[in-house]
Amino acid sequence: MSGWDKFADSFLNARVAAEYAPKILDGLWLTILLAGCIIVTGVVVGLVLAVIRAMGIRPLNWLIIFVVDLFRALPPLVIIVLLFFGMPAAGVSMSGFVAAWLALSLVLMAFAEEIFWAGITAVPPGQWEASRSLGLSFLVTFGLVVLPQAVRMVIPPLVNRTIAITKGTALASVVAVPEILGAAQAGVSFSFNPTPLTLGAVAYLALFLPVVVLGRWIETRFAWRR
């Protein structure tokens, strides 16, 4: 066999691909499900924390800042390992899926809170003063005047950060979740052929390339007004 034939037989083997494509596809759905759960939990809890922080209750703010710093400083894989392999020692066992979901949600929560908070503080104080002087209450001002402007400003960094953290779903393969990478690795060890890994890489590209390109577009479209 020539070099190319050998390469194609290893990485682009049609027989192996046909056999493992359904497994990778199952993995793709699981990745999408896990990513969806993480995005919803992380962004919503992050937003809630940013709103609480805006109320300016000192001790509560210190706590929020500490939690946010904690999950910005810890590597996601360390959190996943701690939850999955460590927590059983405290009598709390969870599935790999739950461990990955919880860990990455906490990380996204921390980054989302920081980003939303940056947006809230970036809204000029005049907006607050104007709507309060028009007789709107604190909460109405916050919800209808400040937050909409803040959210619009933070869309590009939020989208990019969400994409980056969602890619971390591949880490779930470490705790035996059969998402794309997990399914691909299982395929390689069963078939002694790396084609499932090629399929896995293609699946990730199919999933994330459009999102990355979209992120690029959003970045230019919603760029911070300078």
């Binding site: 971390g168 591949a170 880490l171 794309i180 690795q185 896995g200 590209l205 994330f208």
Partner: peptide
């Protein structure tokens, strides 16, 4: 864009 789309762990494996 390709290397930003592939999760680092996938690339490593």
């Amino acid at each position: 864009d390709i290397f930003r789309s592939l999760p680092p762990l996938v690339l490593l494996i």
